[in-house]
């Protein structure tokens, strides 16, 4: 085992603010809306001009056409900076429909609209080749502006390959193959640290020898989880527990199971003795322990 794949995926509802909200809403109606900041016009419309910090004083409708100022060709397509006629700052967007040889600085471009609006900046699919056709001068305070989008749905997905490294690797190899937990002793304070690590956090001294740790210990702290939330890994109710295994001085985070949820508040307490119930799975992680159970006849 070298790395463990982990995904962080979370939903968001993001508020663009009034100006960008209006801009996005109007794209679905195939209108290009900019914001006015003093004598400057920004498109996409912004609540604030980053050059000056000036807030938007109002809106302006721009002809959906302009001039290509720069571009870059990548494996995913072409991105370009389009100075929309009448705007003071270029619009960074996709450039579509060009043969590569025809891409030149100064090329005239016009909006290419998406067939079906979906409520994002991609309702404007990009800018494509255009002639010098009649546009119009920026229209101050355009009529009938759409209400701004207040929330935009977004999902963020981040995929990680987390390294086990020598210490976690040694621990979890032993968990998987031998159903053993392995900690390390600090060379200075001699306390056993689990999970193992190169240095003792408290002494900053190197750790020295490996020690086998039996999956038996004491509940240091526990709570009963009832809350449900987006992204939760386990179905409540369950007993969240921080355990200190015998001989160690650190926290192992797991759950205490095998008890009636209705009695969880009183059945498990700080000081309760527990032991691991190993799973049939061999994943090389804490999931190889189904849960910790109370040891009958020991203090709880």
């Amino acid at each position: 085992m070298t790395t463990m794949a982990t995904r962080i995926q979370m939903p968001y509802t993001l508020t663009p603010g009034e100006a960008t909200g209006v801009f996005l809403a109007e794209l679905g109606r195939r209108r290009l809306i900019g914001s006015r900041h003093g004598d400057r016009i920004l498109v996409p419309a912004q609540d604030f001009d980053g050059s000056t910090g000036e807030p938007a004083e109002g809106f302006v409708e721009l002809a959906p056409a302009g001039r290509l100022e720069a571009f870059t060709v990548t494996a995913q397509g072409v991105l370009g900076l389009v100075l929309v006629d009448g705007a003071d700052v270029p619009f960074l967007h996709r450039i579509v429909g060009f043969a590569e040889a025809d891409l030149t600085i100064g090329a005239r471009v016009a909006a290419v609209w998406a067939d079906e609006p979906t409520g994002s900046v991609l309702d404007l699919a990009g800018f494509g080749p255009a002639g010098d056709g009649p546009g119009f001068k920026p229209r101050i305070a355009p009529d009938g502006l759409a209400q701004p989008f207040e929330q935009v749905e977004y999902t963020m997905t981040l995929d990680y390959q987390h390294s086990y490294g020598h210490y976690y690797g040694t621990l979890f190899d032993a968990v998987r193959t031998d159903r053993r937990l392995r900690g390390v002793k600090c060379s200075q304070c001699r306390r056993t640290l689990l999970p193992p690590r190169a240095r003792c956090d408290v002494c900053f001294a190197p750790t020295a020898e490996w020690v086998d740790v039996e999956a038996v210990g004491v509940v240091q702290a526990c709570s009963v989880v009832h809350i449900e939330f987006i992204g939760q890994r386990l179905k409540p109710p369950y007993v969240y527990a921080e355990l200190v295994l015998d001989g160690t001085s650190t926290r192992l985070i797991h759950m205490v199971g095998g008890i009636d949820p209705a009695e969880a508040r009183t059945a498990v307490a700080p000081g309760s003795r527990v032991r691991a119930v190993w799973s049939d799975r061999r994943t090389g992680s804490l999931a190889d322990i189904d849960y910790f159970e109370l040891i009958p006849g020991e203090p709880s």
Partner: peptide
């Protein structure tokens, strides 16, 4: 993934801007 999460999520992130294309745009100019 890292560089794209730095972008404002409404108009820059969805069009496919990334750290490579950003450098390309600077370089072209």
């Amino acid at each position: 993934s890292f560089w794209c999460t730095l972008l404002e999520p409404f108009t820059q992130r969805p069009v496919g801007l990334d750290h490579l294309s950003a450098a390309g745009l600077y370089a072209h100019r």
